[in-house]
C-alpha cells in the first residue's frame, strides 16, 4: 500500500514536470506548425540560467528571473533565426531548430564545462514534506507539482480568458484573417515562441533543483517530451497534460513490475518457452515504455489522445 501511494505521488509529479516542458512545445506547434527540436535546449538553458542567477541573487529570485532570460533568448531566436526561414517552409524551420540543439549543447559545454554543475538545493526544499510508511515524500517534489499546477492554471486563464489569448487562438486557426483585422501576426508568433521558451525555462530552473544540471539535460528530456506532445495530440494543451500524467504514471509503476512478456503469455495458458524479447523484465525496460506508447497511439488514434487535426 505504501509503495502504491508513494508511486502514485512520484508518477504524478514526474508527469507534471513533463507537462511543464511539453506545454510550451505543444503551444508553439499549435501556433506555428513547427515542432521545435530545440525545446529541450531551452529547458537546459533555464536550468543553467537558474543556477547562474541563483549564485548572485539567491534561489527564489532566480526562479523568477531565469524564465524571463530564457523567454528573451526565445524571442531572439524566433525573430532573428526562425522568422527569416519561415518562407522556406516548415521543414526548413524544423531543420533550423535541429541544428540549434547542437549549437546550444556545445555552447553550454564551452561556458559551463562538460560536467554537471554544483547546484545546491535550498534548505527549505530539502526536507521531507510528508511521510508514507518508511518513505519520505520530499518538499521539492511538492514544489515542482505546485509550480506545474499554477502554470497550467495561468496558461489556461491566459488563453481562454484574456483578449491576448483570443488573438493567439485565432492566429492559430486563421493567421491571414487575424492579420487582416489589423493584428501583427509575426509579433504574436514571436510572443508565443518566447512564452513557450519561457515555460521550458521555468521547468528547467525548477527541475535544476533536483536533476543534475549538465549539457546532457536537453537530450535526456527532449525526446520524451516529443513523445508526450505526439501522444497527447500536437497542439493540444489538455492533451499534453493527459499524456504527461499517463507517461509519468506508467513509467513509475512499470519499475515495480518484474514480469516478462513470456509470463503474461503463460498465464494466458500459452506454454511459451521462447527467450529473447519474451524474457525481458518490464522493470528493466521502463525507459522504452513512452516509445511503445507512442507507436501504439499513432496506430490506434493517429491524431493523438486529444488532438483534433490529422
Amino acid at each position: 500500500m505504501d509503495y502504491f501511494v508513494i508511486s502514485l505521488l512520484n508518477g504524478v509529479v514526474y508527469g507534471l514536470l513533463l507537462f511543464m516542458v511539453s506545454s510550451g512545445l505543444t503551444l508553439v506547434f499549435g501556433m506555428m506548425g513547427v515542432l521545435n527540436f530545440a525545446h529541450g535546449s531551452f529547458y537546459m538553458i533555464g536550468a543553467y540560467a537558474g543556477y547562474a542567477i541563483a549564485r548572485v541573487t539567491g534561489f527564489w529570485p532566480a526562479m523568477v528571473l531565469a524564465p524571463v532570460v530564457v523567454a528573451l533568448i526565445g524571442a531572439a531566436v524566433e525573430r532573428w533565426l526562425l522568422e527569416p526561414v519561415h518562407r522556406h517552409g516548415h521543414a526548413q524551420e524544423l531543420l533550423l531548430t535541429f541544428g540549434l540543439v547542437f549549437v546550444i549543447e556545445e555552447l553550454a559545454k564551452l561556458l559551463f564545462g562538460p560536467f554537471a554543475v554544483d547546484n545546491p538545493m535550498p534548505a527549505e526544499l530539502a526536507r521531507p514534506a510528508l511521510q508514507v510508511g518508511d518513505i519520505a515524500f520530499p518538499a521539492f517534489k511538492a514544489f515542482i507539482g505546485v509550480v506545474a499546477a499554477a502554470m497550467f492554471a495561468g496558461l489556461f486563464a491566459l488563453l481562454r480568458l484574456t483578449r491576448a489569448g483570443l488573438v493567439v487562438r485565432a492566429a492559430v486557426h486563421r493567421p491571414d484573417m487575424v492579420s487582416a483585422l489589423g493584428h501583427d501576426v509575426s509579433r504574436v508568433f514571436m510572443l508565443v515562441f518566447a512564452l513557450g521558451a519561457g515555460l521550458a525555462g521555468l521547468a528547467g530552473a525548477v527541475a535544476g533543483v533536483f536533476y543534475p544540471v549538465s549539457p546532457n539535460m536537453a537530450h535526456e528530456l527532449g525526446v520524451i517530451v516529443f513523445v508526450v506532445v505526439v501522444v497527447g495530440g500536437l497542439g493540444s494543451l489538455p492533451g499534453a497534460l493527459v499524456a504527461s500524467l499517463l507517461i509519468g504514471l506508467s513509467t513509475t509503476f512499470a519499475v515495480g513490475i518484474d514480469a516478462t512478456l513470456g509470463d503474461g503469455l503463460r498465464t494466458l495458458g500459452l506454454a511459451w518457452t521462447m527467450g529473447g524479447i519474451f524474457d525481458v523484465r518490464l522493470s528493466s525496460m521502463s525507459g522504452a515504455i513512452p516509445f511503445f506508447l507512442m507507436l501504439l497511439i499513432l496506430l490506434l488514434r493517429p491524431s493523438g489522445l486529444l488532438g483534433e487535426r490529422a
Binding site: 509503495y3 512520484n10 535526456e220 509503476f253 519499475v255 522493470s283 525496460m285 525507459g287
Partner: peptide
C-alpha cells in the same frame, strides 16, 4: 536492472529499495 541513461525519475527505484 534498469535502463541505462534514460531514467529521469529514480524515486520509484528508491521505493523498491525501501
Amino acid at each position: 536492472l534498469h535502463d541505462t541513461n534514460r531514467i529521469q525519475d529514480f524515486s520509484p527505484f528508491a521505493a523498491r529499495i525501501a
